[in-house]
Write a protein that binds this DNA or RNA. Sequence first.
DNA 1: TCTGGGGTCCTAGGACCC
DNA 2: TCTGGGGTCCTAGGACCC
Length: 415
Amino acid sequence: MDCNNFYVSCERLFNPKLKNRPVIVLSNNDGCAIARSEEAKVLGIEMGTPAFTLQEMINRDQLVVFSSNYTLYGDMSDRVMKTLSTFCSRMEIFSIDEAYLDLHDMPYHDLLQLGMRMRTTVMRDTGIPVSIGIAPTKTLAKMANRYAKKKFRNPGIYWAANEQLIQEMLTYTPVEGICGIGPSHALLLKKNGFRTALDFTTANEDWVRLNMSVVGLRLLNEIKGISAMPWEFEPPAKKNITHSRSFGYLLTNKSDIAEALSNYAANCAMKLRQQQTHCKEVAVFIQTNPHRLERPQYMRSITIELESASSNTSEIIRYVMKGLELIFKEGFHYMKGGVTVSDLVSEQVLQQAIFDQSDRERNKQLMHVMDEVNLLMGKETVRMAVQGSKKKCRRRASHLSRNYTTDIQHILKVN
DNA sequence: TCTGGGGTCCTAGGACCC
DNA sequence: TCTGGGGTCCTAGGACCC
């Protein structure tokens, strides 16, 4: 199952006038287009088109544009997933707008009918249009989903129920349309005479292993109908957590960058606590604008090992500041920076460093109180001094919609 | 002025061990 | 004719996903 133009669909839901109009949703900082309505696709707007190149269309009212509103999309995603899970408990949520359902043991003879019911129920209960592909393996199911979108838009569903229907789909799908084949492998395959997914099924296994590693081999099996991707019904714990952003403006002062990075660090620390892990490594990077080749470029990152694993906001900020000291160079216009925490360990199996003097239990309570207050009063009510004031938040989002489903102040009023 | 952010997995090669 | 063999761990870089 895959939601159609998900972010755009969420925005339209609360703004029905946007039906049949070209609509796009922009990335963070209103940088580029990351979701497009069908009408916007027809206008030729590609994924990743920089927003400033679309300004004229927006001014002439030919295009409606939104900043991304992840509070809204996240909540709508929960609703879609909950609705789907009433049909089948063996469900793997793959991304904010996609899920795999294991229909293997479903007591249905006609899976097409089941799929139709899922679609209409999700539409009725959440208002989000979805497409469904049904096939023997995950990769084929995903392909069936794309095939449904392209060729069977109206029912929005494709069931590759037998060899012949699978073959039709494989013939139609070019190699780059296989999920898992990116631009570089697509090029390689085409150079070697494999144009469609059906061509790929005839590829020699040793050749695939050699040129595309075990990942390619797995893919080959999957499109031959042999399942090679295990199910993950529980979301696995994250192995890294990154928070990185364009600053919104070019920064030259170390203190401004420090403020931004400490906010990113605080976010990482909060996510660590949410999944009950600590990190043993902190990495920081800063970079200038790579699109401005005429200006001096600088980009550096550094990874620092912690003395003992931590999820403490002030401690992680301290390491990030230390990293910044080491990599910052005067005289550049910095555009973007980020913090990654890695080498994560579960809170339970913590080992304290021998010379670690800090009062762990007390700090833990402090963090707990901070998280509770922030949960109750809104994100970032309690902050570390180095994070600066919330008002100075530089994120650009000039076309933000309301949090219709999560904030009582934002709820729609009906006259 | 202006071009996103957050992940995962795999491989080759080096360092190191007995 | 010929230099031992068999491992593990780490890292950087590549490829891919939404």
